[in-house]
């Protein structure tokens, strides 16, 4: 029998994923497709926001959507009806997407000719923050009913996000939601994050969000 060897590895388990994500990001930059990792709790209004965004931008940008869910394909059907090239990704019970799953999804979606791809991550504020998917930007949606103290409970999600969208602003009067307090809580975790309050229902803030996207796509292609 061979002699047992001891090998020093000293490698973080996430390093493998980080390398795959970095390589994917570089390829996406080469082809000029901006991938946005959209993260939130379940029920924050991701699909509603995407549908309203497509209604405003589908004529000027070629947009793809990958809907990640543990099961079902209802969301992919919904956004496809609003003019996006859409596929459903099933994580098979896993609570987050990693770079390899994301890359496989992009292959199935086909990114040729797309300016922008939204990755609608699994509804969860914990591990999607830890796993780099290879996206060029990370956007987090916090809906008004979830409360302004959420950044204190899930700090990492707010630390890694480039943009924090506050959705469902139309219902703010019915909840004890303090936007200033939220901004303070986000800034404490991430001084560089942009914060954008909006309502897909009334249209408030939607133009600012679309401008943010136009600008992000332009910068990515530059």
């Amino acid at each position: 029998m061979d002699k047992i060897r001891i090998i020093e590895v000293k490698e973080d388990v996430r390093a493998n994923n980080d390398r795959a994500a970095e390589a994917l990001r570089e390829r996406l930059r080469d082809v000029g497709t901006l991938l946005i990792n959209l993260m939130s709790s379940p029920g924050s209004g991701k699909t509603t926001l995407l549908s309203a965004t497509l209604d405003r931008l589908a004529d000027e940008l070629a947009i793809g959507v990958m809907e990640a869910d543990v099961d079902s394909d209802v969301d992919a059907h919904t956004v496809a009806a609003h003019g996006a090239r859409a596929i459903q990704l099933h994580t098979g019970g896993m609570c987050h997407l990693d770079a390899a799953m994301c890359e496989q999804g992009l292959r199935n979606l086909g990114i040729v000719g797309l300016d922008l791809v939204f990755l609608e991550n699994v509804g969860n504020l914990i591990c999607p923050a830890e796993f780099d998917t290879g996206a060029g930007a990370k956007v987090m949606i916090l809906s008004v009913p979830e409360g302004h103290d959420k950044p204190l409970k899930y700090p990492l999600m707010f630390e890694v996000s480039d943009l924090v969208i506050v959705s469902k602003m139309d219902v703010a009067p019915y909840f004890d939601f303090d936007l200033e307090e939220l901004e303070k809580n986000v800034r404490m975790r991430n001084p560089n994050a942009t914060i954008l309050p909006l309502s897909a229902k009334t249209g408030e803030g939607m133009e600012a969000w679309c401008d943010w996207l136009r600008n992000a796509v332009m910068t990515w292609k530059a």
């Binding site: 029998m1 061979d2 002699k3 047992i4 060897r5 001891i6 090998i7 020093e8 590895v9 000293k10 490698e11 973080d12 388990v13 996430r14 404490m188």
Partner: peptide, 20 residues
């Protein structure tokens, strides 16, 4: 102060392996 950085405690690091 709140300007603090995690020094260690976030590791999921494979240290050594034994095999043949």
């Amino acid at each position: 102060d709140a300007d603090t950085v995690l020094l260690r405690g976030n590791e999921i690091e494979i240290d050594t392996i034994e095999g043949c």
